[in-house]
């Protein structure tokens, strides 16, 4: 059933968020600590378990996959609700701090990313796995 996938996703999200809240309280931080990340780990674990038990039905895949496919539209909606005016009108200090942070961010990332051995790109990974996979990733 499709709802099984949606419900599984909802349960993982709720439990992860709760754990993140508890972690925040335990660490005396006024924020959720890694709730979404914990939820993701739960969902990955659930998928591995269902796969092994032979219960990873098409309905479950559809229920989760639909929301994963809606991810980009949701990000666009998120972008449309940012306080862009404040970011633009925040004055020179905001501009300097924001721009320098991102610049430094990419420089440091570039150094780390280029230092290691060249990694297999997403395209190469997919080309290799294409034979094993029947269903592709839905393109929006």
């Amino acid at each position: 059933m499709t709802i099984s996938g949606v419900a599984l996703l909802a349960l993982c999200t709720l439990v992860g968020t709760l754990l993140g809240d508890f972690l925040g309280i335990a660490l005396d931080v006024q924020a959720n600590v890694g709730g979404v990340g914990l939820a993701m780990l739960l969902l990955v674990t659930a998928r591995v378990y269902l796969h092994r038990a032979g219960r990873l039905s098409d309905g479950v895949k559809l229920g989760v996959g639909f929301w994963a496919a809606l991810y980009i539209p949701i990000v666009v909606a998120m972008a449309a609700t940012q306080n862009v005016v404040a970011a633009v009108e925040g004055g020179p200090m905001v501009l300097v701090a924001g721009t320098l942070t991102v610049l430094l961010n990419f420089v440091v990332f570039g150094v780390i990313s280029r230092s290691g051995p060249r990694q297999e790109t997403m395209d190469e990974i997919e080309a290799r796995e294409l034979a094993a996979r029947t269903a592709g990733i839905p393109k929006l």
Binding site: L9, A10, C12, T13, G16, T17, G35, V36, A39, M40, L41, L43, V44, R47, K61, V64, G65, W67, A68, L70, Y71, P73, I74, V75, V76, A77, M78, A79, A80, T81, I137
Partner: peptide, 21 residues
């Protein structure tokens, strides 16, 4: 649009992408 792009659905969809991890 605020509901669609809000933290609730955003986190829900992010978690869903983990299915492909």
């Amino acid at each position: 649009v605020g509901l669609m792009g809000g933290a609730m659905l955003r986190d829900f969809a992010i978690v869903a992408t983990a299915f492909e991890v």
